[in-house]
Design a protein around this nucleic acid. Structure first.
Lengths: 143, 143
DNA sequence: TATTGTTATACTCTATAACTATA
DNA sequence: TATAGTTATAGAGTATAACAATA
């Protein structure tokens, strides 16, 4: 008789993540959470090749390829071949992408605020620290 | 110059959740993470109507309807009408569902162990507490 | 041979809106 | 009127495997 799994970290992580995503979507559906994660990573870390971008966002290479295609079709990012290593694609924001991303930061801030309201400042800071530690650990065979 | 969003809770939550899900899938793809969450909730809390099940797992009603249909088609759960309130469906595990879920607990335990290995016992316990607090907060207009 | 990325394929999750049936 | 659940619809995320191009 237990709550072995439903009280566990994995389940609560999925659940909390789903709630945060739902909150995000309630404010606007122009960008999905993964799409904004990609744009924000480009904003905050500059242009990246897809492998690096995948690590920053925890999105696998084939998922990222289709996601990046969609953003490219919408004119929010550019893909150019890296001359130094022609296997690499340099992904960077267009002006339109930069604008769109800047506006979405308000949406992101509201989501962050909701979480902080729920937890309080101290616990929110603590949670952020722990998640960063966990987020940096790539699962065994992820490329 | 910042890492306003990529250092934030929402992004790290999505990222960590994705990593945990990837780890889960590496060990077997017979059940998805949301599917196991539903089966585990039924195991640990007993038969539920769909509204309650949705709250336990943070899955909205239409998503849950299709998910439950899939599990039902596979013979893992039963749906019966609650005689006391014929609007309600009582969702319960079949014997096959109980068996399948029991076997999947090993997969869940391995995932939990991976997280604990990454964080250490103290931080893992702390994270679990914080996530439960956040997971219990339903976003504004979720039914 | 190893790396980077794409494509084909398949399936699930996700959610809104409109709906049925109950209460 | 309100609640419980379904269905139609649409779209995105997810990942495996096979592949091309490059190193």
């Amino acid at each position: 008789m237990g709550t072995d799994f439903t009280d566990g970290i994995a389940h609560q992580l999925r659940r909390a993540s789903q709630s945060a995503t739902t909150f995000w979507q309630l404010q606007g559906r122009d960008l999905t959470a993964p799409q904004f994660s990609v744009l924000a990573a480009l904003t905050e870390y500059g242009a990246q090749d897809q492998t690096s971008l995948g690590k920053l966002t925890s999105i696998d290479k084939s998922t990222l390829a289709t996601l990046v295609d969609r953003l490219s079709d919408r004119g929010l990012i550019d893909k150019t071949t890296d001359p130094a290593n022609r296997r690499r694609r340099r992904i960077q924001l267009t002006d339109a992408g930069r604008d769109r991303c800047a506006r979405a930061y308000a949406q992101a801030a509201a989501t962050e605020q909701w979480i902080t309201d729920v937890l309080g400042d101290t616990d929110a800071r603590q949670l952020r620290t722990l998640l960063q530690k966990l987020g940096d650990a790539q699962p065994p065979t992820r490329s």
